[in-house]
Amino acid sequence: MTVSHGEVIMLGAVLFFMGAVCAVSRRNLIMILIGVEVMLNAAGIALTGASLYWNALDGQAFVLFIMAFAAAEVAVGLALIVYSQRRTSSVNADTYNLMKG
């Protein structure tokens, strides 16, 4: 059996929505990061599905780049988070409010 193109996109959309909600609603920096990963992967799924539908490879190529980028982002992000956590011993995003107004 084959999955229709529309369903793949739908899956991507659902996944994206879950990721976005996770990223926006969680206070834990790590969880936010995970939410972002989910969002990116949702985009990857949508792109792959669309690529199959349009019968073109550029969508899938894009997915490769997304994956590479996600890795890089996690590297930079985790470094920052770790550094911050060491400074304040907290991974709660809202503790970082030295500057406001």
């Binding site: 976005a20 969002m39 990857g44 669309a50 982002e73």
Partner: peptide, 17 residues
């Protein structure tokens, strides 16, 4: 930036779709 990037990426995906 990463959250916004997520939105952007999915947006691109939708446009492509």
């Amino acid at each position: 930036g990463s959250v916004a990037g997520g939105f952007l990426t999915f947006g691109i995906a939708v446009l492509y779709a």
